[in-house]
Design a protein around this nucleic acid. Structure first.
Length: 805
RNA sequence: CGACGAGUGGCGGAAUGGUUUACGCAACGGACUUAAAAUCCGUGACUCGCAAGAGUUUGUGGGUUCGAGUCCCACCUCGUCGACCA
């Protein structure tokens, strides 16, 4: 019979389902191993090869661990709330609740086809009330802990779609859907105080076992910098402006202050003054310009003098206060001191407005002066005569010394600044879990009592965003009108829903307890299974999802619900699968649907092909080019196994060694997620087996076992055809004999002056002097040495001799 | 502009500081076939040479080393992410 993947896969799937082969005893595991992968968002297009790539990489790991004797829990679920689904639903004119059900079913079908060991009994769907009840519960815990608060914040607004957009929906300052320029609006929003955990989030990175580049990305995102808040008195007003700096010593050269156009303090400076109108015009102009080209940093530096001066507390000079287009509201205090000689932006600004430039640091042994300055000097050096008693000190020392001085003057304090901002979780949208808050005229903001959860998302026929900056839920009176839980009087519900990232920030806690209706997660089960042993996922979630998950875990730990601080013991980022060298995306039209390839080649081939492209951490480029190579390999294996019973069976020492070497290679490669080279080793092993006239059944069985994590269907089928008992997936992972793995013969490379001149076969245990002698005796070497006396002979045990003449 | 990653045959990629190109794809030659597909066997960078052989070659240029694809410095190109972060 010929290898027919469709038939084999169908048959084996039935077998697995009937025998419930992947079932783990969640309450009584012997060696629990939680193997997690990032659950997909079930798009209407269906499973993406990128998903298949990631899940295969993770599933191979799970299967490998399972065969090593672990009780592997490998759950799967659907991250189905969110703006993506909602937008698609709007486009299609189908209600998201219907659409999502359909998509989920399609995804489940495709995922089953992939042949992974998913624990479907523990499937999770974030849009189901039994799930989001606990997402709301989580919100309440954060609220109680003082970590959820409401504040005014600028949001992106699309005037054409009349809706608030998520940050991810704003592409180059334009609406993702209609290409209209977005504008900023100030609105009341709910935030989570993630910045309170900035330090812990940073510190724990030191010990968690994660891909280095993911840790670097988080470190950069958290962006800790230590510096100084400096205070500047505004002359003529009872007002102090605060700036943040990491270069306190350049304050001697500060010749202006600049405020971000969005800064609320501007009101106090301009209200009722004769520049008020001009200032407002300027701010409006900047806003408009920003919308035009958010991507450009070449934008001309522009400012508006507010009519007030501040005093430089180090020099006593009066310096002007500007509103400036290049100052960012979201970082530091939103106000900066301008030290033009030592910051390129400040330099350009000063030139533009003919402000004084004072040199504070000069390169050592150089007589640099201001008039020679073509651009800001940011290199090291010594303090100049402009810095009073600090003149002559190195800039490095002066940094601290001047800071201390400013602190003594009571004009500064040390602060730690983070790039990380609090997590904005409000969405004025429909498709998400309602935020469980009630507003009462008497009692104010009241959280929904836990016993009243879930706050069900009502069915709204017209679920499109409304355009007044409120969620569609606001137009459902039966939802909005409620009773205050405290005073029982008329009250109104919060109509915003929460960010999708909140759904995924705790799903790993839900999986083991997915059926529990009384609590979000069972303490006993959680203790057994968490934290997650291995999490494999995309680098694109390096900051958002992974950071949020760590944050919620830390909070739950602090509140005493769980006894660990970090959710994922091990995290490995896989690479990005591209097509034609570019990221697959709907807009590029280069998304590959795996169904076609499942049909044509079979799931085993698709799995192996994807893994063969390159190391999991690097991914690769999808093309149909090489996929036949894998299919041919599986065909050859099939054919070989079919005729195997007729072949003579005798032990072969050489093959036995190859077997042990292959076990070693594949085992190590699996441990390091180097699946591409493991597959190469399996191919070499099959080549070696088929070259022999006589092979033991053990040789072939070993190949099947080693192959089975990669190609589970054909592995199972051939295992049965060879009349082996039970499922191949219940076999023990083979071990290698470290004695047998050793080579009897090894190649000794002989070099003269670093160039290879001869290669000889030797025993790997050859001594240094033997190797040296062998090299000197070689005719080829003699020719190159030419009778000269070697200056030096380098010997690498059993590998190489290099003669230097 | 910045952070991170990557540049090795025609292509995807192998390679504890020690024979560059494992494994696979494509190509070419052959076998089988009426023929094709499939399958099997074989060939494999460049330059010089009839050959034996010699030389060159891991984006570019330097450096460290007996020896560099691998380590260090500078530059170029591509990819991902972030945008004036004081």
């Amino acid at each position: 019979m010929q290898y027919n993947p469709q038939k084999v896969e169908k048959k084996i799937q039935k077998l697995w389902e009937k025998e419930k082969i992947w079932k783990v005893n969640l309450s009584k595991p012997k060696k629990p191993y939680y193997n997690l992968m990032m659950f997909p968002y079930p798009s209407a297009e269906g499973l993406h090869v990128g998903n298949v790539y990631a899940f295969t990489g993770s599933d191979i790991h799970g299967r490998f661990k399972r065969m090593q004797g672990y009780d592997v829990f490998e759950p799967m679920g659907f991250d189905a709330f969110g703006i993506h689904s909602e937008n698609f639903a709007i486009k299609q004119g189908i209600h998201p609740s219907i659409l999502i059900k359909r998509n989920v079913n399609n995804f489940r079908r495709q995922l089953k086809r992939m042949g992974a060991i998913f624990a479907w009994e523990n499937e999770v769907d974030t849009t189901h009330p039994s799930y989001y009840k606990w997402t709301q519960w989580l919100f309440l815990q954060l609220y109680k802990a003082g970590l959820a608060y409401r504040a005014k914040a600028p949001v992106d607004w699309c005037p054409s779609c009349k809706t608030v957009l998520a940050n991810e929906q704003v592409i180059n300052g334009k609406c993702e859907r209609c290409d209209t320029e977005v504008i900023q609006k100030e609105m009341e929003q709910w935030f989570f105080g993630i910045t309170k955990y900035a330090d812990k989030l940073l510190k724990n990175l030191e010990w968690i076992d994660w891909s280095e580049r993911t840790k670097i990305a988080q470190r950069n995102w958290i962006g800790k910098s230590e510096g100084l808040i400096e205070k500047w008195k505004v002359g003529g007003l009872n007002l102090t402006l605060e700036t943040f700096t990491t270069w306190p010593h350049t304050t001697y050269g500060a010749t202006f202050l600049a405020i971000a156009p969005e800064h609320p303090i501007i009101e106090k400076l301009i209200k009722g003054t004769k520049v008020e109108e001009g200032a407002r015009k300027f701010i409006e102009g900047v806003r408009r310009e920003k919308l035009k080209d958010t991507a450009s940093i070449e934008r001309k530096k522009k400012g508006f003098f507010v009519g007030w001066n501040a005093m430089n507390f180090l020099t006593g000079e009066e310096i002007p206060i500007y509103i400036a287009n290049f100052v960012v509201m979201g970082y530091g205090t939103g106000i900066i001191k301008g030290a033009p000689a030592h910051d390129q932006r400040d330099f350009e600004f000063a030139k533009q407005y003919k402000l004084p430039i004072i040199l504070v640091v000069r390169p050592k042994g150089n007589n640099l002066t201001v008039d020679k300055l073509k651009e800001a000097y940011i290199g090291p050096g010594v303090m100049t005569e402009a810095t009073g008693k600090f003149a002559g000190m190195s800039d490095n020392k002066a940094r601290n010394a001047v800071a201390e001085h400013s602190i003594e003057l009571k004009h500064a304090k040390k602060v730690v600044q983070y790039h990380l901002r609090d997590w904005l979780i409000s969405r004025q949208r429909y498709w998400g879990p309602p935020i469980p808050i009630i507003y009462c005229k008497e009692c104010g903001t009241v959280p929904v009592p836990e016993k009243d959860l879930p706050v069900k998302l009502p069915y709204v026929k017209d679920f499109r965003p409304r355009g007044k900056g409120v969620s569609p839920l606001a137009s459902v009176p039966s939802f909005v009108k409620t009773k205050c839980p405290k005073c029982k009087r008329e009250a109104e519900r919060e109509t915003d829903v929460s960010d999708t990232f909140l759904d995924s920030a705790w799903y790993f806690l839900r999986y083991p307890s997915s059926g529990d209706v009384k609590k979000p997660f069972d303490r006993r089960l959680t203790k057994k299974w968490l934290p997650v042993d291995m999490y494999i996922g995309g680098q694109e979630h390096a900051v958002l999802h992974l950071l949020y998950s760590r944050f919620t875990t830390m909070v739950l730990h602090k509140l005493g619900y769980i006894d660990f601080e970090e959710p994922f013991k091990k995290f490995r980022a896989h690479g990005l699968l591209t097509k034609g060298g570019a990221k697959m995306s709907k807009s590029r039209g280069n998304v590959v649907n795996p169904d076609e390839y499942f049909d044509k080649y079979g799931a085993d081939t698709v799995r192996m092909y994807l893994m063969f492209l390159g190391p999991l951490s690097e991914a690769g480029d999808w093309s149909d080019q090489g996929i036949v190579g894998i299919r041919r390999f599986l065909n050859r294996l099939w054919e070989y196994a079919e005729t195997f019973s007729k072949k003579p069976k005798t032990k072969n020492d050489e093959l036995e060694q190859i077997r042990h070497k292959t076990i070693k290679k594949v085992t190590l490669d699996l441990e390091n997620l180097r699946y591409n080279t493991a597959i190469a080793a399996l191919m070499e092993y099959l080549n070696a087996i088929s070259a022999k006239d006589s092979v033991l059944k053990k040789d072939l069985n070993t190949l099947l076992i080693l192959l089975s994590p990669f190609a589970p269907y054909i592995g199972e089928e051939l295992w049965g055809r060879l009349k082996n008992q039970g499922s191949i997936h219940n076999q023990k992972w083979p071990e290698y004999d470290s004695f047998l793995v050793k080579d009897v013969q090894s190649r000794l490379v002989l070099q003269v002056n670093g160039k290879v001149r001869d290669v000889v076969e030797v025993s790997p245990d050859i001594t240094e002097s033997e190797a040296k002698q062998l090299a000197l005796d070689s005719e080829k070497i003699k020719k190159w040495v030419g009778g000269k006396k070697p200056k030096r002979v380098v010997v690498v045990q059993g590998r190489l001799v290099n003669i230097v003449v």
